[in-house]
Amino acid sequence: MAPLTLDELRKKRKEARKEIYLREGEYKSKIIVHMGTCGIAAGAREIVSAFLGEIENLTEKNVMLTASGCAGLCSMEPMATVELLNSPSVKYGNLTTDKAKRIFKEHIIGGNIVTEYAIGIGSEKGG
């Protein structure tokens, strides 16, 4: 490899930052996919992959994707909860990969709740 110039080093840094974002803990939003046995059976893992695919396309990776246990609403699985910084969390149910992608674009990126898929707002706060 040829030695780097100052500019090339800076470019490298920008690229490298994308690789370590999970460890630095600065997020604007959080997606929690419910991964209880029922959620997994209903297809929660495909939902995780769909969200991951969307995060991959972001230049600034400030979305945290995690899993949690069963939400107790097995008939609505697969489900996910979306939390934007300083706003109430929103629960979405009966997800498909297409729905997940739309939620990502409109809610996570755009900041607008996709009301037609939402099954509850703020229900996890205060807990």
Binding site: L6, K12, A16
Partner: peptide, 25 residues
């Protein structure tokens, strides 16, 4: 605990070698 010590890019990502940039420029 945040970087892989065997990867220079991990160090660079955490503002590594920015101090060197600063003094040289």
């Amino acid at each position: 605990g945040i970087i892989d010590p065997e990867k220079i890019d991990d160090y660079i990502a955490r503002d590594g070698y920015t101090a060197l940039e600063k003094i040289l420029s």
